[in-house]
Design a protein around this nucleic acid. Structure first.
Lengths: 198, 198
DNA sequence: CAGAGTACGTACCGATCGGTAACATTGTCA
DNA sequence: TGACAATGTTACCGATCGGTACGTACTCTG
């Protein structure tokens, strides 16, 4: 997977301090919320020290932005993953993602979408966290429109927005209600909406 | 409106410190986020002092819980308001609320639902903010089920959850995308989902 | 008018926040 | 062996965090 020239032998934990910080920050920011986590907690749990953090990142805000860019990348991978099983079938692709999301979001302990959460934690449009997260959401919206176009929807942009509402609703409802929350119906509702929009 | 025995003459701003704190906290918590606002900022903007805050509220967490209870009350009023124009017509009632929400959530500067935001800011299930917000959402879910039952849906609980996803999705999408975001289609999507579920 | 109770402000607390300076230590490769 | 880059160590900074001990002004009642 990795492409580094000659990494090393034992790969128990990420060796470089910057990577350990990045991974630890990812977990803590996602699970506990960004504002709730201080840099001290991050370096402690990562097993490094504060100067190492500030040698790799200009500021906490920059670390937050890096976290959200990482999150966006992992999200894109997860969203596009079903295309392997459903090439040239955007509807099946989308429904496969939606079904997986429905299951994940209906389990206890689900924490929603890190990008959505970031928009809510940082409503200030000038904050880097807000900007990175919003840009990712705009990409998702455009991607949904693209898929709705290829599946021949009557009004693709409209349907895309409808699906967007269902998906975002699943993210937040998933963490409000635990097991058996509204996200359980995401699959059937997406199908119903798509069928009624062709 | 008020029922206090003999308040006074001029009612320019709330006279009691506790009320001014409550009102100011409401605005600040809602607009900027709960964790982002310190007690100092609240008392400054309210024109009172910190001891006044802590005489009226046990802790910041208690003030947060009070804010969320206030929010829940105002939400319920807003949600039930259309019943005046549409008595004994749950579908029209619900659609009236949904249309108003759609407009509000498609405007710039919209900040979503304070209760939803609180769940995201406080993922810890033991935190009072989380508990108050989740309880309010459970009430909403039950209310939606009730309405879907009275409108004769095929599977009322299922439809209620679908509508919940659309509504929650509008809350968060409204603050991610400003003017012209996905929330603009909330009305048509709700209708489409209801019609396809009867 | 005395006195009590209520309502509020001044000034301060220790803890934690994000962030840094100076220096010692380690591992790697030439 | 020696140089360099990366990391750790320690100690610290000013600002802000949530929270409080204590004094003071007002008002209502007798």
């Amino acid at each position: 997977m990795r492409s580094k020239p000659s990494p090393d032998t034992t790969t128990e934990t990420p060796r470089r301090a910057a990577d350990r910080i990045r991974d630890t920050a990812f977990d803590l920011f996602y699970r506990e919320g960004i504002r709730a986590v201080g840099v001290e907690e991050i370096v402690n749990q990562a097993g490094v020290t504060k100067p190492s953090l500030y040698r790799a990142f200009e500021s906490k805000d920059e670390l937050i932005a890096a976290y959200l860019r990482d999150y966006d990348q992992r999200f894109c991978e997860r969203f596009e993953a079903p295309s392997a099983e459903h090439p040239d079938d955007p509807k099946a692709h989308l429904l496969a993602y939606v079904d997986r999301l429905s299951r994940r979001a209906s389990r206890d302990g689900y924490r929603g979408c890190g990008l959505t959460n970031a928009v809510i934690e940082y409503p200030d449009h000038d904050h880097p966290a807000h900007q990175v997260a919003v840009e990712s959401k705009q990409n998702l919206r455009e991607r949904l429109r693209e898929m709705c176009r290829s599946m021949g929807a009557r009004d693709p942009d409209e349907l895309a927005d409808g699906l967007m509402l269902l998906i975002e609703g699943s993210y937040v409802s998933g963490q409000t209600f635990g097991e058996g929350g509204p996200a359980r119906v995401l699959g059937v509702m997406a199908r119903r909406l798509i069928d009624a929009s062709m």
